[in-house]
Amino acid sequence: MTELIAFTGQPLDRADHLRRDESALAQLRRDDALLLSLDGLAPDNAGEGGLHWMPLDQAASDAELVFLGLLGGRAAFAAVPDKGDPDPAFTRRKTWDAIAQLPARDIAIYGAARSLIDWHARHRFCAQCGHGTTPAKGGWQRDCASCGASHFPRTDPVAIMLVEYRDADGVKLLLGRQERFPPRSYSALAGFVEPGESFEEAAVREVFEETGVRMRDVEYIGCQPWPFPSQLMIGCIGTADSLDLRIDYQEIEDARWFSFAEVAEAVAQRADSTSFVPPPSQAIADYMLRWWVEREAKR
Rank of each mutant, 00 (worst) to 15 (best):
L175T: 07
G84D: 09
Q27R: 14
S37V: 04
A63K: 12
D244N: 14
E200F: 09
T2E: 11
V204W: 04
D248V: 07
A108L: 02
P227R: 05
L289R: 09
G111M: 03
Y110W: 15
L162C: 10
F258E: 04
T134S: 13
S115H: 09
H17Q: 02
L51W: 08
P279N: 12
T155H: 14
A60N: 11
L36F: 10
D44Q: 09
A108F: 05
A60Y: 03
S242P: 05
A108W: 03
F199N: 02
E262Y: 07
T8C: 02
A127R: 10
L116K: 03
E209R: 15
L28Q: 13
I160W: 05
D85H: 05
D13F: 08
A60F: 05
S281C: 05
D13T: 09
T155E: 14
H151I: 05
H151N: 07
G138V: 04
G69A: 10
H17C: 00
A159Q: 11
A98E: 07
V171T: 15
P278T: 02
D286E: 15
I160H: 01
E210Y: 09
L116R: 15
S273F: 02
F181I: 00
Q224T: 01
A76Y: 08
D16I: 01
E64S: 11
V204D: 03
A60V: 00
R114C: 01
L71Q: 12
D254P: 11
V158E: 06
Q224V: 00
K172I: 03
D169I: 03
C223F: 05
T155A: 15
P195F: 12
L38W: 01
W53E: 04
L12Q: 08
V163H: 08
G139M: 03
G111H: 02
A76C: 12
P43H: 06
R30H: 09
D254T: 05
E197H: 14
G138L: 04
L175V: 10
F208K: 15
E201F: 04
Q27N: 02
V163A: 13
W257Y: 06
I107G: 00
E210G: 03
Q10D: 11
V204T: 14
L70S: 05
W291M: 01
Q250M: 02
M233S: 03
W119V: 03
D143W: 02
R114Q: 09
Q269M: 14
R177S: 13
R122I: 01
A104E: 06
H151C: 05
V267N: 10
L245Y: 08
R154L: 12
A26C: 07
F67C: 05
D87T: 04
D32N: 15
S275R: 12
K94Y: 00
D16Y: 11
I221N: 01
E3M: 11
A261N: 11
T134K: 14
G212M: 13
L162W: 09
A168Q: 13
Q250W: 01
L173E: 07
A203P: 08
F192M: 10
L41E: 02
K298F: 00
C129N: 03
P43F: 04
L175S: 13
P86W: 04
D248A: 15
H120Y: 10
L12T: 06
S115Q: 10
L232C: 11
A264T: 06
G238H: 00
R93V: 01
I247P: 08
P153C: 13
L41I: 07
K83Y: 04
I221M: 13
I252L: 13
H17F: 03
S23A: 15
R256M: 11
D87I: 00
I160S: 12
L56Y: 03
G222Y: 01
